[in-house]
Design a protein around this nucleic acid. Structure first.
Length: 111
DNA sequence: TAGCTGACGCCCT
DNA sequence: CAGGGCGCCAGCT
């Protein structure tokens, strides 16, 4: 992962590495990219990912509480939750159950 | 051109 | 325990 790359592109690359059925957080990605305070930028990158040609699993990225804060941006407010459930992730009321067991930390899984 | 906003997260009252 | 402020920085008004 090159630092010279645009931040959003790096975010997309990390997002694409999230395994099926696992989730991560905006902050974790930001931290992995050495910008621990730039979680907002990760969300911004996810938003732009919809207009990207790449297939970004944006539904696997949630906030640090496991809440589906970005579901409004999926066209249908239910889509994000549906996608996660189809991957076997339990979601209740915009919140991922047993978030810790699904959490995928790029800072640890990637080196 | 300057200011506000936001798929966030941490710190301070 | 809850609410408010600040940093992050690209894009929009």
């Amino acid at each position: 992962m090159q630092e010279s790359e645009d931040f959003q592109k790096q975010v997309w690359q990390v997002a694409e590495l999230i395994p099926f059925g696992r989730v991560t957080t905006y902050g974790a990605i930001a931290h992995y990219l050495n910008k621990p305070n730039a979680a907002r930028m990760v969300g911004w990158a996810m938003n732009k990912s919809f207009s990207s040609s790449a297939n970004i699993p944006a539904h696997r990225v949630v906030n640090r509480n496991g809440e589906l804060t970005g579901k409004m941006h999926f066209g249908s407010p239910q889509l994000m939750e549906i996608l996660l459930k189809e991957e076997g992730v339990e979601v209740l009321n915009n919140r991922i159950l047993n978030f810790d067991s699904y959490f995928w930390n790029p800072n640890i899984e990637l080196v």
